[in-house]
């Protein structure tokens, strides 16, 4: 398991940030990702592997009409 925005999400071996966002259907273009408190830049989402048990923040920057 990992925690994503405080909620339990099933862990997948070798899961990258990109894969996690796909799994969560997080398609919003303005998301900040922190893994265990550390900012992961967008250009690294494809390669950064999330460790088992990690606490992930996928913060959608506020928007709306």
């Amino acid at each position: 398991m990992i925690l994503v925005n405080g909620k339990e999400v099933e862990y997948e071996e070798g899961m990258t940030v990109k894969r996690l966002l796909e799994k969560m259907n997080y398609t919003f273009p303005m998301i900040i990702v922190r893994v265990d408190g550390k900012l992961v830049n967008k250009e690294d989402w494809d390669t950064f592997k999330i460790p088992r048990g990690a606490k992930v923040q996928a913060l959608h920057q506020i928007a709306g009409g």
Partner: peptide, 18 residues
């Protein structure tokens, strides 16, 4: 009307205001 506040992402998705 949503022009006062649009908090859905902060609340429902980000869980920033529990």
């Amino acid at each position: 009307q949503h022009d006062e506040a649009w908090l859905i992402f902060m609340d429902m998705v980000n869980n920033q205001i529990p």
